[in-house]
Amino acid sequence: MSVPILKTEGLTHVYSQGTPFETTAVENVDFQAERGEYLAVIGHTGSGKSTFIQHLNGLIRPTSGRVLFDGEDISKSKEKLRNIRFKVGMVFQYPEYQLFEETVYKDIAYGPGNMKLSKSEIDERVREAAAFTGLSEDLFEKSPFELSGGQKRRVAIAGIMAMRPEVLILDEPTAGLDPVGREDILANIRKYHDSMGSTIIMVSHSMEEVAKNAQRLVVMSGGHIVMDGSPAQVFEHGRELTEMGLDIPIAAQIAMKLRDMGLSVDKSVFTVKQLADSLVRMGRKDCD
């Protein structure tokens, strides 16, 4: 097996160490992400997921443990750390607050500009990122502050995609958008994933979103990774997830209720389609 693109070993982070406010946000997390994987990190507020993902591009230094990118410790040197930030792109929550340039074009070009690329290379990347996020080129000369909320968010995400990160981390990229906007952003991310072959790590609250998009789910609770597996595997533990204060997809909820009522609905059901198929199959069996 090849070297995982990102790996953490015994990652621990303690806030305000040595003071009465000492809190352990992340404790002894061993995690790895393969090249080209689309995975989602879920967990309720305060589960340590935000702290955890900020370690992955070196914005926070671990109290103990290591973060390895392509097998190498990322905090070896300052120069290395800066390069890592270009390879591991991070889209924060409400990223539209980071926009600052006069025009959309310049704002998307800020990241690649910091990478010291040639002008033509930057231009190519800006156009590519705009295409990924569905921004038309006539918006380039507009001020980002004139745009709508959804468009601002796309500009912000394009600003990260333009760095062509090998790992793209997104912290709740759809928070505060309407359903159409959410769907669009998710489609943009999928497009980037499919055509660049990059690893995607998405933090989300919405289980529906996660169930539909991610290949692998990592569940965090109390600073630990408590579950790690395919959506089908994770949603099998519907009850534990609910106890952790997490939602499960509506189809999985219905399946759980039906099982409680004594029906033999498949345990791995988590999309509406699977549920429907499973029910139809059961109906057929009854008819036979």
Partner: peptide, 27 residues
Amino acid sequence: KIMNAQNARGADFDTGGLVKKAKAMIP
């Protein structure tokens, strides 16, 4: 928060001369 976000885009707030540092503050 903003500092983190711009750091993630490769902003550099600490190195360089006075002019460069002042310019780095714009984002």
